[in-house]
């Protein structure tokens, strides 16, 4: 900021207030940075930073509380929706979000996410699907695609012995308790704008007391995928979007009426 000469330059892009002024530990090219920034921008725009309580999970986003500039707690592996339930039930006026990866939410935390959704907990879940366990070095996740090579599916995921990927948005959309469940992608400017709009909608749902909201973000993991960031984006487009179609899977009629 100090480098800007206010006489000759106009600041058009700065760090949102809802992000702390530190470097993250995320790998170069990782889309966690995009997701963090979008969430922070929306929180700034809605002026809800002082009402926010975040729940970090276990995985690459374990240190999310270092990067978001609002109150945060850090959950055991998979338990973020349960912890968020505890926070929200005693502080119903606050805005409570979890930030979870695919191993955390769709594997070890499957019971917690399904039951938080089916109870219609008035919380918002941000789900980062990058098809592998990033933090531990790229093992097979519940979202790893058939045939995809990981450090624990070294010949490619064999669905005969290792099962099929879980489509979390579709699964949670089937529950009567969920109000807003969508899948977005962080691969290009258009999709990133759509992702931001969905974040706004999810927080509106919570602020209006309309219940459970979840956004799945198709994300990349260049380090563990062994690709450049741009090749990863192409891989996402060619492989993930066909298996995990983008779209709105559950929009409760009361949510559909919200105009943003």
């Amino acid at each position: 900021m100090d480098m800007i000469d206010n006489d000759t330059e106009t600041l058009v892009y700065s760090r949102p207030n809802s992000l702390t002024d530190v470097s993250t530990h995320y790998c170069p090219g990782c889309t966690h940075g995009i997701a963090h920034r979008l969430i922070a921008e929306v929180i700034d725009e809605m002026n809800i930073r002082e009402k926010m309580i975040g729940v970090a999970s276990v995985g690459c986003s374990v240190f999310a509380y270092n990067y978001f500039n609002f109150d945060f707690v850090q959950a055991p592996h998979g338990r973020a929706p349960a912890m968020a339930t505890g926070v929200k039930r005693v502080l119903p006026e606050k805005v409570v979000m979890t930030y979870q990866g695919d191993g955390d939410m769709a594997s070890i935390g499957m019971a917690e996410i399904v039951h938080a959704a089916t109870r219609g907990e008035n919380i918002t879940v941000f789900f980062i699907n990058n098809t592998n366990y990033g933090m531990t070095g790229g093992q097979m996740a519940p979202t790893t695609l058939p045939g995809q090579k990981t450090t624990s599916s070294q010949n490619g995921r064999d669905v005969e012995t290792q099962g099929y990927p879980i489509r979390a948005a579709e699964l949670l959309s089937q529950l009567d308790g969920s109000s807003y469940v969508v899948r977005r992608s962080l691969n290009d400017p258009k999709n990133i704008r759509l992702a931001k709009k969905a974040i706004r909608m999810a927080f509106e749902v919570q602020l209006r007391g309309l219940g459970f909201s979840m956004i799945e973000f198709l994300s990349i993991c260049p380090t563990n995928w062994g690709m450049s960031a741009s090749a990863s984006m192409t891989w996402l487009e060619n492989n993930m979007i066909p298996y995990y179609p983008l779209g709105d899977y559950k929009v409760h009629p009361a949510v559909a009426e919200i105009k943003i």
């Binding site: 729940v55 707690v73 959950a75 055991p76 338990r79 349960a82 912890m83 968020a84 339930t85 505890g86 926070v87 929200k88 039930r89 005693v90 502080l91 019971a111 917690e112 399904v114 039951h115 109870r119």
Partner: peptide, 24 residues
């Protein structure tokens, strides 16, 4: 006051964890 019958003891204790973070 808040009451939730959780889906498991695992979830119940983590709900406690979340609520305890608020100082209640």
């Amino acid at each position: 006051r808040a009451f939730v019958q959780a889906e498991s003891e695992l979830a119940a204790v983590n709900m406690v964890y979340g609520a305890a973070c608020t100082g209640q």
